[in-house]
Design a protein around this nucleic acid. Structure first.
Lengths: 263, 263
DNA sequence: GGTTCCGTTCGGTATTGCCGAACAGCGTTC
DNA sequence: GAACGCTGTTCGGCAATACCGAACGGAACC
């Protein structure tokens, strides 16, 4: 996913990084050299050289019997390091754990990336249900509680910009798909301090989120708790909202920020 | 850390990947272009092009005010994906959680990489103490319980090879530094099924580990629990060993392997 | 044994990534 | 205020180098 198609990038590096993404998106058994070369529309020899370089750096590894390429251990190493070096992720971890234990829900935090949420850490709930929630991806802001909590911290002007940029895609019949409806929800969020995603991203899935702030008073991101609709009756949501707001404030304090006063 | 200095690698890609490592090893505030160019012994313009490519792919990002380079969100994305795609890591997670909850210890699993342990997942204990335990790195096998548990599954011949390759570095006064002592410990591990690292890697830190097996009957890796020596009296260790062995067997079953019968 | 995939290696070509110089934006210092 | 040092950025020219295609060697399958 090359976000910006900036020219004057180094071609061989771009190719190598795209190749990593290709292997990551590939099947669990891995991909063969020929498959990769075909997909990359490049010669086998050139692809081979790139692959060897990536294998030498452990970005990829070869499967045990068949010569197939798989994700390598350097990716785990870099991900772990990046997570450990991210002040928001590392400072929030204990608070996320606490929230997950108290509520039994899956807890996530997102960074505020120019108004868009990027989830950077996740603590799965104890139940058998696992939510498909990839990390490190710039997500649409209007279909997650953390995203909406971040949106609510922006100016109305900036919200309109973002909506114009990326639209209001309907993930479910309950998704917010018009700007007036979104703004109405944003106003509610600004008053009560927490956001609710009631099956707006996935059917049967509810999540509640609140924003936290850095030492500049800027919105640094949002924390959210996710669960099944059947486990979260309406009357619980308000209570949970307050609880999540409290945990968001705890993160704000850890980041050295000022807790927002709500009227 | 380029493991093998294989020639005929793609230079610009190698440079780019080394550059990622450089930023990862750098300070939390990030590195400037000039600093990176100096360190890489390359011109600013060339380094700039490489950096831009990495930023476009989100491997790196720029710090908010000052133009400094920091780890990007793609690393978290790839690490999360790699972890999710690793069958050992994803199948073991629930078992690791259970073990951590029961014991209150930090639980880790390592893959068997040609006899060397590579830790791929970690669940921190509830306490305030955090152990510095990076993931995705080929570690020395003789200073961790998971490493020794994996070693015990190899032939004596292979163990000698590994010791010759990487030596027996002393991390603490209690580290095993001679082959006969290592072999004596290995024999004990083979009998009782679990390995103990009694302050052999770090002072005041104890860990206990056991191996698990894949459907070929090969040792796929090891699981270990880590805690402070003061929390783990000698008489507890045997009990804990049995407990960890049981959890290792649970992982073996999930991997479709056969549980080893011990005499 | 033939056929068809696979992965790997090897030179020739021209693409392309490198360098150094020059420019522009800040902050400090004199 | 102006000069300096440090940034990051851009541009053209040269040479290195990453590409390609062909050829080889091995495995699997018919």
């Amino acid at each position: 996913m090359p976000e910006k198609k900036n020219s004057s990038n180094i071609g061989s590096v771009t190719k190598a990084l795209n190749l990593v993404d290709l292997v990551m998106a590939g099947p669990n058994e891995g991909l063969t050299l020929s498959e990769i070369a075909r997909e990359m529309k490049s010669s086998k020899s050139a692809t081979h050289a790139t692959l060897r370089t990536l294998v030498d750096h452990n970005y990829l590894r070869m499967s045990e019997p068949g010569p197939r390429y798989l994700p390598g251990m350097a990716l785990i190493r870099l991900g772990d390091l990046a997570s450990a070096r991210d002040p928001i992720a590392s400072l929030s971890r204990s608070i996320m754990n606490e929230l997950s234990k108290k509520t039994g829900l899956t807890v996530r935090i997102a960074r505020n990336y120019d108004g868009y949420p990027v989830f950077i850490e996740r603590i799965d709930g104890p139940g058998v249900v696992r939510f498909f929630t990839p990390l490190g991806i710039r997500e649409l802001p209007h279909v997650s509680s953390a995203g909406k909590a971040i949106l609510a911290e922006l100016s109305d002007e900036r919200i309109r910009e973002i909506v114009e940029e990326s639209g209001l895609e309907a993930r479910t019949p309950k998704s917010i798909t018009t700007l007036p409806k979104l703004m109405a929800d944003i106003r509610k969020i600004r008053v009560r301090g927490y956001a609710v995603d009631d099956e707006e991203d996935a059917q049967g899935v509810v999540c509640i989120g609140a924003a936290f702030y850095d030492h500049f008073g800027q919105c640094a991101g949002g924390i959210s708790a996710t669960g099944l609709k059947s486990e979260l009756p309406i009357e619980e949501i308000a209570k949970l909202g307050i609880k999540i707001l409290k945990h968001a404030e705890a993160i704000t304090k850890k980041l050295g920020g000022k807790v927002k006063v709500r009227g």
